[in-house]
Design a protein around this nucleic acid. Structure first.
Lengths: 260, 260
DNA sequence: ACGTTGTTTTTATAATACTGACAAAAGCGA
DNA sequence: TCGCTTTTGTCAGTATTATAAAAACAACGT
């Protein structure tokens, strides 16, 4: 029987693509270096193969640093190759019956980055706030989020830069569940527009920061299963597209909450 | 649309093989010289390509003085290519299954993955909907999102799987701005709970899908500055933490919208 | 200072596209 | 039938890609 790599080659992948996918299936998920070690292909060659596989939709990418990759399950990945083959076959059938046209496809994306670690996330939050020109929306008062605030003095710094921005004339809106923490913010940041919503609406830890309607950061809290420690990770993007959609949701929440 | 030769190349034929077969389809039957004249490829190269095509069973040979060749009808020829592909795919699946490592569940981190491309994103949306056990929230009716729906029939498929899920007893809630598209969804998916919010709240293209309160996909539309074409990218996560925070926002919006 | 990550450039190598030479055979006008 | 040309099929060789492999590099974090 042919090996997986040989079969994948016959299905249209290059040697590298086949080996990279095969390696990812073996290890579940990993970084480019992991793939290099498992597959035995040059590390620098891993990146190109990963890009092509991602375009095919046979792997998935986690935009963290270092970037992590994982294989789409073989049934699904092969299904995609098959779908592609069938579509090409259908196209060939039509084309062979004549009629020619050319069509172009345009592409490319709005980059989304992820950050992990309490320090890194709070640094990024501060960096974004510092860059604000017009308005800031900060929805961060979810219950366990405060747990982190107790241990790490990130809110202290965030409050300071927010206060600075208000002095510069930037509109700052803060929303969260009605709690001591929120009252504390209201006291520490004079000039900020604060609103609260009932505690029963709250769910898990996290928050959203929107700056000037074009930068978004979403912080997500997670509890480590082993240690029971809280950790923070965040995704952020500078694109208008992503920002506007999140802004929409946050502003709906804003309208639904009450001033304090 | 791609030419026949381009599609055939993507199906695994070489340039010469594709051109020779294509030429034979055009002329019905002919000698190597005829093929040379019609296809424009070097006469001496025709012979080799004919041999390989013959081995694939996509052409037939007449052993006469000047040998004559004719194309097997496209449906049949493409069927042979497909059979070969499927066999190879099956083999790959078995080979990959031997090295597949099932993900360990439980200690899952809050990993966030990104997908790009309209096809890949819509595939993922469908995959997530299919996996739903209890409830689905789909907020996707932002204006330019419909632009993609016009070109790509992804909504058709999404509507179908949503309808299937409702039959299985899954609660499906759909929200979006008041528009024709939303009314269309309401009509096509009987049993779904549909709500609308005023159009002035809408912003840019995108949408959010939440499945069983533990899987979230956020689709973001972007318009290519050069070509003016729309593209889709998405981020998604399977973690409860991220899901609950997004669910919170979406449910707030749900409460703020009205039934239709 | 060091190791890692990700990009880029460069070099090898193999697959394929292309060219021309050639012998065998067929045609064709004496 | 003979010359002569044309066509056919095969081969050897070159050019041009596509891919594999290697190496250098900046950016970054420790």
């Amino acid at each position: 029987m042919k090996t997986a790599v040989e079969s994948l080659r016959d299905l249209g992948l290059t040697e590298y693509e086949a080996k990279v996918y095969s390696a990812l299936v073996r290890i579940g998920s990993g970084t480019a270096s992991d793939i290099h070690l498992v597959s035995g292909i040059p590390r620098s060659a891993v990146y190109g193969a990963l890009h092509r596989l991602e375009e095919r939709g046979t792997i998935e990418v986690q935009s963290s640093k270092p970037m992590r990759y994982r294989a789409v399950p073989p049934e699904i990945a092969l299904g995609k190759l098959k779908d592609n083959f069938m579509a090409e076959s259908e196209n060939a059938l039509v084309a062979l019956g004549e009629i020619y046209q050319t069509q172009k496809i345009g592409v490319r994306e709005e980059a989304i980055w992820t950050i992990s670690g309490i320090k890194n996330v709070s640094d990024k939050i501060i960096e974004m706030i510092m860059s604000a020109q017009n308005d800031i929306i900060f929805a961060a008062s979810y219950p366990s989020f405060h747990e982190i605030a107790k241990t790490y003095p990130i809110f202290k710094n965030i409050k300071d830069v927010l206060a600075d921005k208000i002095e510069e004339g930037v509109t700052v809106r803060v929303t969260g569940l009605r709690s001591e923490g929120l009252y504390g913010i209201a006291k520490d940041i004079p000039g900020a527009i604060i609103r609260a919503f009932p505690a029963d609406k709250a769910t898990a830890g996290g928050g959203i920061l929107i700056v000037d309607g074009k930068g978004v950061l979403i912080a997500i809290m997670s509890e480590n299963a082993d240690t029971g420690m809280y950790d923070l990770m965040a995704i952020y993007t500078e694109g208008v597209g992503a920002a506007s959609i999140f802004k929409h949701f946050v502003e709906t929440e804003w309208d639904a909450s009450v001033a304090i």
